[in-house]
Design a protein around this nucleic acid. Sequence first.
DNA 1: ATAATTTTGGAGCAATTGATCCAATAGTAT
DNA 2: ATACTATTGGATCAATTGCTCCAAAATTAT
Lengths: 194, 194
Amino acid sequence: MARPRQYDEDAVIDKALSVFWKKGFSDTSSRDLIAATGMSNGSLFNSFGDKTTLYLACLQKYNATYIAALESLLISELPFKEKIQKVFEGTAKKVSATDDYEGCFFFNSSVDSGIHDAAISTLTAAIQLRLEKAFCTAADQARESKQLPIESDSVQIAQYLMMITTGLRAMVKGNASVAEIDHIIHSALKFLPF
Amino acid sequence: MARPRQYDEDAVIDKALSVFWKKGFSDTSSRDLIAATGMSNGSLFNSFGDKTTLYLACLQKYNATYIAALESLLISELPFKEKIQKVFEGTAKKVSATDDYEGCFFFNSSVDSGIHDAAISTLTAAIQLRLEKAFCTAADQARESKQLPIESDSVQIAQYLMMITTGLRAMVKGNASVAEIDHIIHSALKFLPF
DNA sequence: ATAATTTTGGAGCAATTGATCCAATAGTAT
DNA sequence: ATACTATTGGATCAATTGCTCCAAAATTAT
């Protein structure tokens, strides 16, 4: 019926995500996206709308993969402390050996001064809530299995753990070295009051 | 001997800082800076070099004022817990009633994807160290005055407190409401293991 | 006054930006 | 084959970017 697409939408979003991840919203130009995805100018804008909409699609994808994996970990049946340790360690992990971008794309989005789009803000708020709930579920599970005192406030614990995770992510996005991050993770685990 | 300057360098840097603070590096244009400072194009570049150098001057000023104040608080003679509370509460405070920028300009700088300047990175690293040391001094004082157990590791405590402060700043820079921040600060204080 | 000197204003530049436009292309249905 | 249609490539657009250039202006020393 018509000329078929020459690109794989999923692969294109992955490539675009990688660029936004490294460079942030404002410093990623449409030419950067064209170069990274291999699409032509016409196709890119014809298929994904404008730059903001493409960024939103990237964040949705990040939510559906990385955030979903983090959520899975948090609501899994592992021992509570072990989960928390894995979450903390995950903040410092490189995504892959070849790609050099690090940190959390959701975190980057939520502190990116160049983003002024309502839909993106709504999504970052939703991800924040999703993670808080996952932490809360983890705390509830721990309480029920007596890994936490029965009188613990799950919501409060969840928010606290979320904030520490955010602090770690900020240090990763900043200049902190792998050794420094490892050291802080060790301290954070040691200082957990539960 | 020559035409006198029509601007006050300190006031100009304050205005520029305010713009960078609100909009981040990449989203602040030279025209934004000209409009905010009231300088002419020629004067701005003639006096402050390029945009990057002006940003550096703003961060230096921030270091000399806000960071210095935070350091003073940390090395003051106040009770340890009271200091920590004030530091945490300070992360959520608006700079003034009229200005609407919030959060910590140093934090913003250290997570700004648009900054690729070596001098700026060096300065953010120096500020990081300065604050860590101030936290460490606070911990040392607390140890000596038996507000902390004598066997406490001051460096470790300092890094941990620094990370929590960073986490709070990230939440401020993100979407978090004042109520949410207040609540988290309360939890953070409650959960301090010392 | 005149000369010397620095600052000022703003016109203007080359490069880059996000996005549009549209003929050429490559398929499917008939 | 022919018609139909969605995709493609890339030329092109107006707007914006960081920054330069330089004549005009404003001061002090002589």
